[in-house]
Write a protein that binds this DNA or RNA. Sequence first.
DNA 1: AGAGCCATGTAACCGGTTACATGATTAG
DNA 2: CTAATCATGTAACCGGTTACATGGCTCT
Lengths: 183, 183
Amino acid sequence: MNLSTLGYALLGLLARNPQTGYDLAQRLKGNVGFFWQARHSQIYPELAKLSEQRLVNFEEIAQAERPDKKVYTIMEAGQEALKAWLTEPVTVPKIRDELVLKAYTIWLAEPKGASELFEVHAKAHEAQLERYIEIKTFLEQKWQEDGGQVSSSWFGSVAAVRRGIGYEREYAEWCRWLQTTLS
Amino acid sequence: MNLSTLGYALLGLLARNPQTGYDLAQRLKGNVGFFWQARHSQIYPELAKLSEQRLVNFEEIAQAERPDKKVYTIMEAGQEALKAWLTEPVTVPKIRDELVLKAYTIWLAEPKGASELFEVHAKAHEAQLERYIEIKTFLEQKWQEDGGQVSSSWFGSVAAVRRGIGYEREYAEWCRWLQTTLS
DNA sequence: AGAGCCATGTAACCGGTTACATGATTAG
DNA sequence: CTAATCATGTAACCGGTTACATGGCTCT
């Protein structure tokens, strides 16, 4: 019973709330999409696999003015599989970043155009940084209201968004340094 | 003539030095591999494509005590394609990080095992950070010796390693924060 | 009238990894 | 004697993206 990472991602989301495949797809292109993305074309087949393996359950709900839907719920076996996965070792991830690749060869470019490219990215990361800061404020408040324990699901959200903040801040600063140095 | 990103990566490396496919594979699993990776099984066919499109040239060199080899050189058309690509817009890259995914669901785990997981990663990123700092010192010296211009290939290397340093530092700090908070 | 949301699925394609294949030389 | 290095290639597989497919409701 070797699940894919996407399988665990879905289990993790279902551990928070029972949801439909559509809902999960929204999450994975919304804020959760910051660290893990998936399209519905990948999600629906994966849910079918999780269901086959009795890690999740679904209830079909007929709707009048909307298409019928399947609400998935995590089962006990799913919770256990998820918990086991959480503390298993992870290989240190490798960056695969086209912009850094361009930076590596930027000595060949005309500095003006290059500087503009990095300014665009600086702005994008600065904007994302501010969005994350707002989200963090919201999440930390919720976490405190929930008792401020590491066993609160809000804690997981706070942890993830903190990574987002650090990442965007650092990326933006690097872009600004390059942009300034090139101009 | 739409090249893949790997194609441009190879052109960028060949713009620095004429090299064999084997050499390129070494680079892309060494320091360049920090921001772009590729295996020889991907590189050899890509070089054939670049050659077909007359962006690179190769010279076959027969060797006595080693297998024969093909040394690839970038051509003028290749240089031009590369320069044009450098300033073209890049879509802002998305993180896909299993450890952050785990952090998001870490509220379900037993804190002790979780804390250990993040400590392992903290150490890994701290170690990588120190390696990059050493490399940066070396590269900046070379860059200065070469005149300290942005048109020096050393500048591209410095830019890339600076990103590496920021990335590792931030990642390590985040792991430490989580590790401490969990224990 | 057209875009966008809700809702679920399949199929083709593509980039990248793993494995298969070969073979001499050198270092431990 | 075994493992690693040099050196180049092909083939199978797999995760993920894009595109195909359907269809009613709501907002502009």
